[in-house]
């Protein structure tokens, strides 16, 4: 039987430099390199991925926020315009009503005033008539009886 040591030494101290049958094919190293460096790239990608998400998320948040603010402002503006239009219309109708009311009030007042004035005049005339009558009557009473009965 052979000695284990003999076989061990043959492989341990083998000079493989001139053993061309042991030359790996040319595609092996490029495959190894591709696997190693693509893995490295992948590792970087995994490291960078959270940052990419964070930045992307922040940008999206700001973009959405800005557009929401713009929408709100536009909405507020349009609402304000609508409100002002409505207000204007309301004002116009109120003014119209108010002018109608004022007009009727004014005519009522004029009527009232004229009636008051007329009443006053009538009262004064009556008072004047009465005083004249009383004066005539007193004069007639105080006058001596000149006429024979």
């Amino acid at each position: 039987m052979f000695e284990d040591k003999d076989i061990h030494d043959i492989f341990e101290h083998a000079n493989v430099e001139n053993e061309d049958w042991l030359q790996p094919s040319d595609k092996i190293f490029p495959n190894i390199e591709a696997a190693i460096y693509s893995k490295k790239r992948d590792r970087w990608l995994w490291v960078l991925l959270p940052f990419i998400f964070l930045i992307g998320g922040t940008l999206t948040y700001f973009y959405l926020n800005e557009s929401t603010e713009e929408t709100i402002i536009t909405h507020q503006q349009s609402t304000a315009n609508l409100n002002s239009k409505k207000q204007h219309q309301d004002d116009l109708s109120v003014n119209k009503d108010f002018s109608n009311i004022t007009r009727s009030n004014q005519s009522n007042e004029i009527q009232k005033n004229s009636r008051t004035i007329l009443n006053k005049q009538a009262t004064k005339l009556e008072k004047d008539n009465q005083s004249l009558l009383s004066k005539d009557l007193a004069k007639k009473i105080n006058e001596p009886n000149t006429t024979p009965f």
């Binding site: 492989f11 493989v16 430099e17 042991l22 790996p24 190293f29 190693i36």
Partner: peptide, 14 residues
Amino acid sequence: FRTLYERYAKNHLL
């Protein structure tokens, strides 16, 4: 790394 590979690839293939 290529140098390291080329130096021992034959031993390892064996």
